[in-house]
Design a protein around this nucleic acid. Structure first.
Lengths: 297, 297
DNA sequence: GCTATCTATTGCGTAAAACGCTATATTTGC
DNA sequence: GCAAATATAGCGTTTTACGCAATAGATAGC
């Protein structure tokens, strides 16, 4: 069923005259006649009673007239609506990040953007940054805030937002296993320290590398998913942890831990936003990406 | 816009896969691709984001999905509705008749039919039977109850329902102009009688003929549209009238008038139903016509 | 009652469009 | 890096749609 048939039917039912209706439709009477025949064939009913001299609507025709008008109206409406949707960006953007990131970066990142694109809704998923890239690669989330990996997958675009140092943290309460002179680390004073590290992710990799360089196999007290939980456990006195400094800065437990200024220092690492290259084609994703790019050239 | 495009879009948005969708649509992937392109061209927007490996709905696509489903649903609904309309006759039938006919014939005529075809509504127009045929010829009414004319127009079909006599009626109150021996009419005793006749119509023609045969030019006291009004005027004592006997039988004023048994008697005439031949093609008209034909073979 | 007129419909030749097959380009998983 | 997957463009064929002219049925006027 083509909407042209509906238009023809409506003009026909208004004029009740094939000749005049055909002028209004910019077509020939024969086309109109065949349009009506096709419509009636599809509906298996007679819409217009006609002979060579009279044209009149059947009850079904009267009924169908309402349908036809409504249907064409709805079509015009959806066209307008979609045009508006296109002019003003709409839809969801889902972002995966750590709790810390949701406190620190996100507000600044989104505050302007929300005002500029009120049609876009954000869905936040928080969790261990170690999962961030997989969430994006699998398409579960559009974007993620994550440490930049050494070799980003080619399917991903990455944009640095800030650099953060990794720091060792220890409980403020005394403990006999605490290294006495962290400024000059030795294998001896670290090998007995109970360590609380990430299960996976860049912070774990850097910590492992650090210990390896020192020639120590660390004593792993706990492996934790999520940096925030590391702060908790260290605060409770269970051991020494390695977390991004930014996590510490945003932690409500910052007072119950202290930074150990170890030498050599753990490396800095980039924290940034990542997205699938192909999703950058989506206008709303592209808009956010560009908004972020302006702030972080 | 063809509904095929909507079907293709819906299957595509369900499967998010051109190959599988094309199987469900019994068509080729390239057709599907072109359907979507055409749809997007008509809407000037992107409904489905796609590359060689991924297919996903845009926000506009999600929006349009609802529209497409609704539109196809409505199409199915109107198809079913019209099929019912066709199976069970619907629409209006307008009947023109005199007030008397509406009392006497009509109830009997329509009582069964209404039960059998509850979808048909009747519109009754009452008025002077003299207008009846014109109302039908002009298409203002579908049918009329009317005296059968001497030569019915070829465009009309006519079916006799009953025969009725025309009678002279006089007031029951005494009046000096009343003919003394109506059983043997003479020109002398009629020429002074104030007559109350129809303006037009068969009863008037027959009355005129009757007076002509008697060699009298009647004294017309009043010309009235509608037989019922004649009974009223006669009952009030204004003169002698000519009405179909059936009008008298159904008149609430029957007691205030009396029948004059004149010789020669006025002729009988057929009262029946008439309709435009071409309107007999309409199913509901045809159904009523046939129902009447069964009762009046 | 006949004729002129009006008008929806059909036949037919042409134009357009829709379709499917195949090739292509691009992406992804191993 | 290679093989599999997959949406899409090109192209020849088939189907469909269109308009013109002819036709048939009905009406109005003389």
């Amino acid at each position: 069923m083509d909407f042209r048939l509906l238009k023809h039917f409506i003009t026909l039912s208004d004029t009740l005259h094939f000749g005049r209706a055909s002028e209004q439709c910019h077509t020939s009477p024969s086309t109109l006649s065949r349009s009506l025949q096709q419509l009636e064939r599809e509906l298996s009913t007679t819409l217009i009673e006609r002979d060579n001299r009279h044209v009149s609507l059947t009850p079904q025709g009267v009924h169908f007239q309402r349908y036809a008008r409504d249907t064409l109206d709805q079509w015009e409406t959806i066209k307008r609506t979609l045009a508006n949707d296109a002019a003003q960006l709409t839809g969801d953007i889902s972002i995966y990040c750590s709790v810390t990131a949701s406190y620190s970066f996100l507000y600044e990142l989104l505050s302007d953007f929300r005002l500029q694109h009120p049609g876009i809704e954000f869905k936040l998923h928080t969790g261990d940054p170690a999962n961030a890239m997989n969430r994006v690669l699998s398409g579960d989330d559009d974007m993620a805030i994550t440490p930049r990996p050494r070799t980003p997958p080619p399917a991903l675009a990455f944009k640095s937002l800030t650099r953060s140092s990794l720091v060792f943290i220890a409980p403020t309460t005394p403990a006999d296993w605490l290294p006495h002179t962290p400024e000059s680390s030795t294998a001896q004073q670290w090998e007995a320290v109970p360590m609380i590290l990430s299960e996976a992710g860049l912070s774990r990799e850097y910590a492992d590398t650090w210990f390896k360089a020192l020639g120590v196999t660390p004593r792993i007290y706990a492996q934790v998913a999520g940096h925030e939980a590391i702060v908790s456990m260290v605060g409770l006195g269970f051991g020494v942890g390695v977390v991004p400094k930014i996590v510490l800065d945003n932690s409500p437990l910052a007072d119950s831990v202290k930074v150990l200024h170890v030498k050599p220092e753990l490396p800095y690492y980039d924290v940034g936003l990542c997205v699938l290259n192909r999703r950058l084609k989506r206008p709303r994703i592209q808009a956010l990406w560009e908004a972020v790019s302006e702030r972080h050239p």
